[in-house]
Design a protein around this nucleic acid. Sequence first.
DNA 1: GATTTCTGTTGGAACGTTCCAACAAGTGCG
DNA 2: CGCACTTGTTGGAACGTTCCAACAGAAATC
Lengths: 340, 340
Amino acid sequence: MGGRRATRPTIVDVARKAGVSKSLVSLVMRNASNVSEASRRAVLEAAEELGYRPNAMARSLVQQRSFVIGVMVSDLSNPFFIDVIQGATDTAREAGYRALVNTGGRDKHNEEDAIETLLRLQVDGLVLAGSIVDSKFIERVGAEVPTVITNRHSRSQVIDSIVIHDWKGAAMAVDHLVGLGHRKIAHITGGRGAGAQNRLNGYRQAMKRHGLEGEIRVVPGAYTEKGGADGVARLVDEGAGFTAILAPNDLAALGVLEALSARGFRVPEDVSVVGYDDTFLASLGHIDMTSVRQDARQMGSQAVEMLIERADGKRSSTNHIVLEPTLTVRSSTAPPPFGD
Amino acid sequence: MGGRRATRPTIVDVARKAGVSKSLVSLVMRNASNVSEASRRAVLEAAEELGYRPNAMARSLVQQRSFVIGVMVSDLSNPFFIDVIQGATDTAREAGYRALVNTGGRDKHNEEDAIETLLRLQVDGLVLAGSIVDSKFIERVGAEVPTVITNRHSRSQVIDSIVIHDWKGAAMAVDHLVGLGHRKIAHITGGRGAGAQNRLNGYRQAMKRHGLEGEIRVVPGAYTEKGGADGVARLVDEGAGFTAILAPNDLAALGVLEALSARGFRVPEDVSVVGYDDTFLASLGHIDMTSVRQDARQMGSQAVEMLIERADGKRSSTNHIVLEPTLTVRSSTAPPPFGD
DNA sequence: GATTTCTGTTGGAACGTTCCAACAAGTGCG
DNA sequence: CGCACTTGTTGGAACGTTCCAACAGAAATC
């Protein structure tokens, strides 16, 4: 049962069967123009019968191009990156490339390993989505193959980058809350997560701009549910009041919601909450949370476009792109309680 | 800026630089045993200096093995499959293989295309996670390369399969609810989704087994938030009472929760809700939902193990594995309201 | 009718590896 | 000392494709 798998037929087998040269088979498979109808049919028929499938490795070996774009994504469990992948995949497909995903699981060593694997497979371009590996490593990689890094600020001369303006996103959230009448707006940070530092700065600046310098409240957190919950615990322990919380991302915001309700705070009546990333989590009916929207799909898509430009030799200068965030307002934000 | 990328150094360049033959370089790179310390060092040094990186394509071409396992996942936005990928990736890595992910986005044509791409890359094995392509197509694929299909029942003589006992999972949920005292247990189905039919059958059988044949209530739904919400609307419209709902998966269950709360039902005081898959969604503190647990990671892991067994020629019989679900009880289920 | 151009086809070199049979230089043993 | 064995190294063939210069035959041009 199952049986031995026959070795796969090669171009030579097809040629023999169709009674032509292997070169002609090659031409037919790439549907070149100067092939007679008769030969074309004979070849296709033979190929079909044998179940022939071109060997992409042999092909890239001689062509020196694989038409594969590697996507190394640090953290698959973050819905944000899933969207990046989808954008990259679709755009690659439209351009005649394929996107292959490898994951590092937020472990530096595994990430390097994943990148190494993709490089050995001779990918034509590399998207590093939220990678945590050293700049030095990335720089070396970029010298070998067109590379775009996302969600991480870069000044490299070699690597293209594409980020969403974290600073501005945080500021927009603050503006929204201030517009609703809030003054006591606290921020739980994303720790050493990608973009967290800029979001923090954006928060600070915006508070100052609104003359709320004295109300700045920052507690350390992380890009996880627990990070958000811990942040709330800290805020409450410290005693000073707050009427709104800016979380570092959506997952953390969920932790915030949970921790608040456990402590008897109602959202948004007592406290307003703003998430970040606007992943599907924020849009779940049961949650329906205001969140800073980052267009992850667009990000993946544009990253691939940049790579293909480079691969085709259409560009040799380095691009650092900054996308604009927007704010998706939902029902987790409202004016502060009376008297605050 | 950016500059022209030099062509990559090959094994011959390293050999020349180190003053040895390319064969010896090859041996060093695969760290073979019979190499003198002196040569080894010379080679490694030269390789380092040139930034040499073995070309995996050339290697697989001659070895007739790529040590790559392809994972075609139909729907990246389902957290369940993300876990399957993680399991597959980790297990592959431990066994000296790499897992590369390609996605079809729930589109039949794109899925076939994704599979084709992986095949042309000469993967040593293929995991089809929740694929919706024709059995006929899959059967042909399986004749070429070791293949495991997950979450889809198969009787194939060629393709291995690995599923979780959907029938039993649904029955466990019913048992749990009956144990709490429920009788009016409704089921919202997953439509044509993978495993949905079996879950439905499991529900029916379990109801009968408990002598609740007359209480069977089934409404059509889908594996989406909307599917769950629509199901609730239907149940309410139809008028007959219910004290518990078995959703077809977690996402749908979230829709159920939302629709219930919009209609003024409290969970679990008025209605108990059970989800399916036990993804991270169910465990979110804010949601904390009882759900039928399917060990997705284990599934991905075992799929890869089966592939490697085949690739190593250690097995030629076909395996159809059925994993056991368990029930994770959380706070969305409780005894029915008094009097029901 | 000779030359040029076009059309369709071809065999061999190349891509960057691994495999393999063969070898030179030691090392051990009777 | 002669022989067998071991250790370390080697060049060439092979993997399955594409590229390229070259070709034969037909069609077009003078």
